[in-house]
Lab assay of single mutants.
Amino acid sequence: QTVHVKGVQYHFPNPEEAVKFALKVAKDLGGRVEFHGDEIHVE
């Protein structure tokens, strides 16, 4: 599972961890989380 944050990719073997990370980052940055297939983008 890959999380993209402002052009940087973070790889997580566990999808659940990836989602938790993405939600935390989005909250910290005041952004939103978008799901694109296997990828999660924080915009």
Rank of each mutant, 00 (worst) to 15 (best):
Q1K: 14
Q1G: 09
Q1C: 13
Q1A: 15
Q1L: 15
T2H: 05
V3Q: 00
H4L: 13
H4N: 10
H4Q: 07
H4I: 15
V5H: 06
V5W: 09
V5P: 00
K6N: 15
K6V: 07
V8A: 09
V8H: 10
V8R: 10
V8L: 10
Q9R: 12
Q9I: 15
Q9D: 07
Q9M: 14
Y10K: 03
Y10C: 03
Y10F: 11
H11V: 10
F12Y: 03
P13G: 10
P13N: 14
P13L: 13
N14P: 00
N14D: 11
N14H: 06
P15K: 15
P15S: 13
E16Y: 11
E16A: 12
E17N: 06
E17D: 12
E17C: 05
A18F: 02
V19L: 15
K20Q: 12
K20E: 12
K20F: 08
F21P: 01
F21E: 02
F21A: 03
A22W: 02
K24F: 06
K24V: 08
K24M: 12
K24Q: 14
K24G: 10
K24C: 07
V25L: 13
V25F: 06
A26E: 02
K27F: 12
K27E: 12
K27S: 12
D28P: 03
D28L: 13
D28A: 13
L29R: 05
L29C: 07
L29D: 04
L29P: 01
L29Q: 07
G30P: 06
G30K: 08
G31C: 06
V33A: 04
V33F: 04
V33D: 00
E34G: 06
E34T: 15
E34Q: 11
E34A: 12
E34H: 13
F35P: 02
G37E: 07
G37V: 05
E39S: 11
I40Q: 01
I40T: 02
I40G: 01
I40V: 05
I40P: 02
I40F: 04
H41G: 02
H41E: 03
V42L: 04
V42S: 00
V42I: 11
V42M: 02
E43G: 09
E43I: 15
E43V: 15
